[in-house]
Amino acid sequence: MDTLINPFLFYGLCVLGAVGVLVALPRQKIAGFAIGVLIGAAALAAFFVVLGRQAVKDGAGLPNFHFYIFSAVALFSALRVITHPRPIYAALWFILTIVSSCGLYLVLQAEFLAFALVIVYGGAILITYMFVIMLASDGPSEDAVEAMTEYDRVSREPVIATFAGFLVLAVLASFMAGGASTLKANPRMAATDDPMAQMAPKVEKTLREAGLLAEGEKLVKRPKIEGGGPEVKQQLALDATLDETGGLQILSADGRTVRTLAEKDWPEALRLSDAQRVGFELIERNPGAIEIAGVILLMAMLGAVVLARKKVELDEQAKLEAMARARAESELGREAEFVQPATGGDN
């Protein structure tokens, strides 16, 4: 089996990307963002070209441009998030990252998550960020970069951080390469777990509404399995039976013959949406986790309320500074009073 990408090429591209990111990171004097982006984009483009070429060579048809476009946008905006000196812009760029990630989700047919992400991140979390930036920002209103606070303008130890980051990337990619070869897609897993088969009443109702299930006909139910707990038995009692090709088996009214409704003949309404599937996944397989997630959110809410209400005292040094400032101001005031007693009331 041919490799998807030559490891040396990948590592080389990693180095190139690292240089790009390093150059793009904010700095005291030189603003090298454009150059950094160019280098990084070149690395990414080379990477994508290699990947796409391999895909074409494997006979998979034309490359899926949606993926490449969304990826490029997501990565560029992610780079902008970490390089933009203004937090508010970084947050805005982060929204773009979220949106392009949603595009990637859509390519993966995870529609529910895509929209949930836009709502939760773009709608809720990022708005919170905006508020906090506004609440806690001491930055000036001028546009000039020089006027911004020093800690926003200068990144901290960019070389070490970039090196560490891309080392992690190279190692992670190598692990993916080494580890995933034993991981195979398992179609059977999908078939047996198909929610279709687990909701016989809804299937029957839909089929009747579509006229595909005549009066008196019933879905063939799975035989009862002895030995399970009462819940298992009850659930199994509702299950319809699929034949080997995945078609539904329907029992005639007299109960003698069984016919098969092939999957391609199913009405559109019978097909489950992504949201439904995720719902099944959550409710059926992770009910406890959902409860815990609810508790986490509740706790987070309570914690946020408590923290936000807390009266914070300045620490000693800050207090001293504040006092000195106050004294200096009052002395100035008194001086002014002394010199110009008549105008003292203006303060």
Binding site: R156, E157, I160, A161, F163, A164, G165, L167, V168, V171, L172, S174, F175, G178
Partner: peptide
């Protein structure tokens, strides 16, 4: 915070590298 975070990240990278080379 940054110091610890850098150490952590680099540590993960180095550990991964070691695992990669040693467990291959």
């Amino acid at each position: 915070l940054h110091g610890y975070a850098v150490a952590m990240a680099a540590g993960i990278g180095v550990l991964g590298l070691v695992a990669l080379l040693a467990l291959r």
